[in-house]
Nucleic acid binder design. Sequence first.
DNA 1: CTGAAAGCGCTTACAG
DNA 2: CTGAAAGCGCTTACAG
Lengths: 338, 338
Amino acid sequence: MTTSIKDVARLAGVSVATVSRALGDGPVSPALRAKVEAAIAQSGYRPNLSARRLRSQHTQTIGLIVSDIRNPFFTAVSRAVEDVAYRAGMRVILCNTDENPDKEAMYLRLMQEERVSGVIFAATRATADSLDAAALGFPVVLIDRAGAAASCDAVLLDNRRAAAQLVEHLLAAGYRRIGGLFGNTSSTGAERHAGFVEAMQRAGLPAPARFVAPSAAAAQTSVAAWLAEADAPEALIASNGLLLLGAAKAVRAAGFAVPERLALAGFDNDSWTELTEPGVTVIEQPVDDIGREAMEMLLERLRQPERPPRKVVLAGRLVARGSSLPRGSINAAGRSGG
Amino acid sequence: MTTSIKDVARLAGVSVATVSRALGDGPVSPALRAKVEAAIAQSGYRPNLSARRLRSQHTQTIGLIVSDIRNPFFTAVSRAVEDVAYRAGMRVILCNTDENPDKEAMYLRLMQEERVSGVIFAATRATADSLDAAALGFPVVLIDRAGAAASCDAVLLDNRRAAAQLVEHLLAAGYRRIGGLFGNTSSTGAERHAGFVEAMQRAGLPAPARFVAPSAAAAQTSVAAWLAEADAPEALIASNGLLLLGAAKAVRAAGFAVPERLALAGFDNDSWTELTEPGVTVIEQPVDDIGREAMEMLLERLRQPERPPRKVVLAGRLVARGSSLPRGSINAAGRSGG
DNA sequence: CTGAAAGCGCTTACAG
DNA sequence: CTGAAAGCGCTTACAG
């Protein structure tokens, strides 16, 4: 039914080996190559990638396993990964785990069945800590969250430093009762929490924190309840873009003036943080760099399987906006943001 | 090196055919099935999907070709598509075309080489109009943008109606000099423009429109220039979430009060539209429904190849917010949105 | 440079 | 229910 390399060979009057060579960059005389190309054009032949993969044992495929592509951080990272991958002639299989370890296990298994060349993986803490890369049969580059086992390549943000940076920014602006909101399934949340606690302790302050499921809805519910309590904080930091979004919605619904009644800051420079009034102070992650770096690291690993594992740690960039204006200067400076 | 069905057969003391049957739901006696399962567990065997695809001629793979996964509309649609696909045992290959017809052609070709079961495709106008689904060799479900040729299944928004709805809402609110911003590569832009023009004409008004490349940056530049002109509109509608985002940034940068100096409305209920002050009036698209419906339509088509093509047209929902408050009531009603 | 042949790891009639 | 055999569409030593 669909034409195969055999049909092309017959049409061109050559062997299938010659067609195969002409398709790649094998040694073929110009005369035969021309014949093959004519036969391909005439027949509308398209190589069958399943056959090629089976025979060559190179799938030219990688897996990209993230928690949810709708999280703008992963959206951006995915796009960067795919751009680099396609340019290197590799296909990407995208999987959403919803931070569910069962789904993570299922997709890792699928990756084995696909015989992928490698996987870029934003794992939950539980999975990252127990990951046995050697048993998997393909190299893994962890992104966003590191594993306890240092056996994998990884591209990470300096999460402790970034969280501390946010705290220091708020402290410098005069806020003291600073609360933290963190995801409860990723090691990212744990690290950012650690940075938060350290910075608060250095200032001799308590570090009230809440941990929630990694969704805007869960964050909104949690923050709404928190703001209604007697000891509601005067500033809040949220550990990722989804949580920050939920927090912003709760703050808005509660009618709290920002930053007069509650200062707000968090992770991920998602487009909306620039458009609220006031804008929201954030740590911007180099999302394109993270995706590109992860894919390049994986390609490098495929070239040199024995190379010792590397961790690339990238710095976040503080984007100060109106939501964290210095307490004293609020009336003087207005809400023009930063 | 990696264990194959042959190793499992040897280990279990059965034929490869029996292993293959035990893997699927073929007829195998309980005794042999138990032996096979033990051998699989012992050997850590994983079926090779490339081999299975080649032999069975069923790839269980679909293509999802969109312009840019970073557009929240496509992000949401992709996630819905993937959920349905994985549940149906199918893999998804995601491709970003950046509305570039060359990339579209390249990816369609790749889909042929992958021997995909079918493709869900948000095509540019140029490609949608010239698409020859029969020649492709797999069924196509168009999303977001219809082709001139009615030979494909499609899941669409009633774009003309939705655009007209936005215009009627602004007219009812007392705005007259309404400008429209549209994408210049998609048929969606063209249809929404048509709905915009029709509704303005019914009101006896001119319909000033600008067409831009489908990115927030292009929209921002265009709107910034427009707002600086003498005949700047008093209300603006933007044809998709990216353009609306760019428009909102330009409006903010120009320091125009919304809606007093410029009312704003557009497509896609992206999270930020709820968080600006005032909130932005939008047409919400049923993104989950679109993705799910498209995937289900494709599965249906695979079951019944000869069924006549269907178009599913979904309605948008107007979400009225403060950015389009009635002109007269602005002072009375404040900016509480709607 | 070229062709004949083996084989990647499966599934699926075909016999029994 | 079970096995031996053919073959999906390629690539790649092996000879020449």
